[in-house]
Computed example of a mutant assay.
Amino acid sequence: MRRTLFSLLLRERDLLGWEAFCVHFAAIGRELARETGNRRLATASVGRTTFDRWSSGTWSGRPRGEAAQILERMLGYTVEELFSLTPDAGEPAAGLESVAARIGSRWPTSTLLLPAGGPAGIWEISGRQRLDGTSAAVHLLPVIRRGEEASVHGLDQDGLRDLERFLRPARRGFLVGVEEGRDDVVYVRDAAAARRPALPVASAAGPMSIPSAYLLDDLSYGILWALTQLDDGLLSDDQALDAEQTLLETYLSLPRSAPSQLLVNLSTIGSSWMGSAFCARHIQQELLDAREVPIFWTREQTGEEAACWLFFRHKLEYLRALERFHGATAQTVRVFCLPESAVAHSEKYERVLLLLAIALMERCGIRVRVVPKTEYSDVDGVALVPGQRAVVAN
């Protein structure tokens, strides 16, 4: 499909985002206003809807008045040239819009925004009840499956330059490979991995590839979905969490719970990490002299809640610390309350995360049991030493 020169110039000059475009548009408008004395040029603006229509690549109208003057100065072409279809414009891979739609329909917590139908955009990832949501840059690429790899193919020099510009910034980003002829088969690779070393325009090592094991399915999406949100949430609270950790020993020495006021100012994920770290230390401290094998009750009912077991290091250290209770005739037990309704209303990728957390516990020698009774859903997490004590973790 042929596209307008305007949409191609936006992609070439990294102006596909409405905000970036408006900055340049306003600056040129003020410059023209000083030169011509026409004050309306200094206040001219472009709304998001209008920009989306212009940048779609197929709009056949013509901007008028001050907007036309600014665009001609800004891009160096007449509006007739800018909004005429180019005869030989290189196109991004076909079906990118359908790929974005498929990903959004399969995983409702995921939205791919591709401005002007180009290959680069934003991947918005939203949480449900416990995760705050985040976003990452994304670049879609055509690939062909060859054995254990999906190799990028069909990129011309412009496409390679676009990819280099995408990989250059030090930010969170993903490369999404779309298998040729099958827009329902996609692979995901962290842009940071592809950035080391950055892809040259002409690579002597051959085409860049994505391991076929990185197929985007419920397993890989669930990990990507949880890990990016947890990581970005912790990074946003990094300074506060570092300062707060120095006070943990003080809290643990107190005879009663005394949560810091600082926890109120953390993100949902930051407060979850701090509370989880405190509870893990508290339980281990209270079980130091336990002689009986404890039984643990946990409140996690969804993959969103259970993901902390998979990605917080102190969780793994906590599980390993409990291995001292394991023996030839003894085994710790962790009980999950999983009402059928809670499982039925969770997405498949969330159930995968929950099962992975259970598998991790069993790998650490813990026997997992499940109670489906809804009336127990609000019982706090607790470590029970039969006949001795119950250590509450909330």
Results as ranks from 00 to 15, higher is better:
V391W: 01
A290Y: 04
E91G: 05
E97R: 11
H314D: 09
L355I: 03
A192I: 13
A328G: 06
E35V: 12
L71V: 08
G90S: 08
E317R: 13
L216E: 03
L262R: 14
G76I: 06
Y187C: 05
I144Y: 05
S7V: 09
S60Q: 14
E72I: 03
A328P: 03
L141S: 06
D232I: 01
L353A: 01
A44P: 00
G173R: 11
T246S: 14
V391S: 05
E180W: 03
T43F: 12
S276E: 11
P169L: 07
L112N: 05
V385M: 03
D231F: 00
E249P: 00
L288C: 08
A67P: 02
G29K: 00
S377Y: 05
P115W: 10
L113C: 11
I28K: 10
G37I: 13
L41Q: 05
G57H: 09
G127E: 00
T78P: 07
L288M: 04
N265D: 07
T43I: 14
F6Y: 13
R369T: 03
L227T: 09
N394W: 08
W59H: 11
R299V: 08
E148A: 14
D184E: 06
E97P: 02
L384M: 06
D156Y: 05
L175S: 04
R196K: 11
R146W: 13
V201E: 09
W54C: 07
S346C: 12
S341R: 15
R351I: 02
L384A: 04
L8M: 12
I70V: 14
E375W: 09
R171N: 09
G206Y: 04
W107Y: 01
R13A: 08
A136N: 02
L199V: 14
H24Q: 09
T49P: 01
M274T: 11
R334V: 09
D162T: 06
N265H: 04
T86K: 06
V352K: 11
G118L: 03
R145A: 13
R367Q: 10
L85Q: 10
V392N: 08
A393Q: 03
S55T: 06
P92Y: 01
V23F: 13
V379I: 12
G181H: 10
S377V: 15
G104N: 01
L227A: 10
R39D: 15
E72P: 03
G117A: 13
G65T: 07
R30E: 14
L234D: 02
D217G: 15
A193W: 14
H282Q: 05
